[in-house]
């Protein structure tokens, strides 16, 4: 029953988020601001995580396929498919759920407990729409770029690891990442990213927006936002994989 009640609140919350904005020009400005705050400021962490994970995937694949029967270029192919299909979308989604999700939940939660959201409402502004819709649109536009960056940097990290450790030659790796390339994998990853962006912003914002109490509750709502976003991302991953790759 409690789950249904929370789900109902979430749907009502979304209907308020997607109502008609008071002044489109101001919302556009907000979207640009959020792109910088939530998107551009996440490029650093995405690059760092992607380069190391790309390197680890390449090395792990190399050590686990240690057989003279397996051509070395397959290590590059495996690393590429792992990065394109899962890592750059889902892993980056989970990392952003932690970074962006907690930022959104704590920001909105702080505004709630300091009555800033009430102040917006008292001015006749739809606070849910004003505060959350720009964040949602900004992340849904920007996260595919982050995923694309992650793909490129992840593959680069694998190449660096291959050369530095001597696990395989540069030419084998580059041949492997070009071999039997299916462009749809990129489309698939970018589509997933848009869904993840929606989940991260809406779930975290919902937890921040409905917080009651003080600083302790804001912290708890932020944690809940990250946990629920992460679980939903993984559930969505299963569903989208079945829908988009199995057929």
């Amino acid at each position: 029953m409690r789950f249904l009640s929370i789900f109902g609140e979430y749907i009502i919350f979304l209907s308020r988020v997607f109502s008609r904005p008071e002044k489109s020009r101001i919302y556009l400005k907000q979207i640009m601001r959020e792109m910088e705050s939530l998107g551009l400021n996440s490029v650093g962490i995405v690059i760092i995580v992607s380069i190391f994970i790309g390197a680890v995937i390449t090395l792990q694949t190399r050590y686990n396929l240690d057989s003279s029967w397996i051509p070395l270029y397959l290590i590059g192919l495996t690393a590429r498919d792992t990065i394109l299909l899962e890592f750059s979308s889902t892993m980056v989604g989970l990392i952003l759920a932690g970074k962006v999700g907690s930022q959104i939940a704590s920001e909105i939660g702080h505004m709630r407990i300091t009555e800033q959201i009430d102040a917006l409402e008292m001015m006749g502004i739809n606070s849910a729409c004003y505060l959350i819709m720009p964040k949602m649109i900004a992340t849904m536009i920007f996260n595919p770029f982050l995923t694309a960056i992650s793909m490129i940097v992840g593959l680069f990290g694998g190449w660096i690891a291959a050369i530095v450790t001597g696990a395989l030659s540069s030419s084998d790796y580059i041949y492997g990442i070009q071999y039997w390339f299916i462009p749809f994998y990129i489309t698939y990853a970018l589509i997933k990213t848009v869904f993840y962006a929606f989940i991260i912003t809406s779930v975290s914002a919902f937890h921040g927006y409905t917080v009651k109490g003080g600083a302790l509750e804001v912290g708890r709502s932020s944690t809940r936002g990250v946990v629920y976003s992460s679980i939903l991302i993984l559930m969505t991953d299963v569903i989208l994989t079945q829908l988009m790759l199995a057929w």
């Binding site: 702080h110 300091t114 009555e115 800033q116 102040a119 001015m123 006749g124 502004i125 739809n126």
Partner: peptide, 19 residues
């Protein structure tokens, strides 16, 4: 209600200025 609220000014206990 939104229309009526545009006729209202409110001073909150903690001021509620946008940080």
């Amino acid at each position: 209600r939104k229309a009526i609220r545009r006729e209202i000014g409110m001073l909150f206990q903690g001021s509620a200025l946008f940080d």
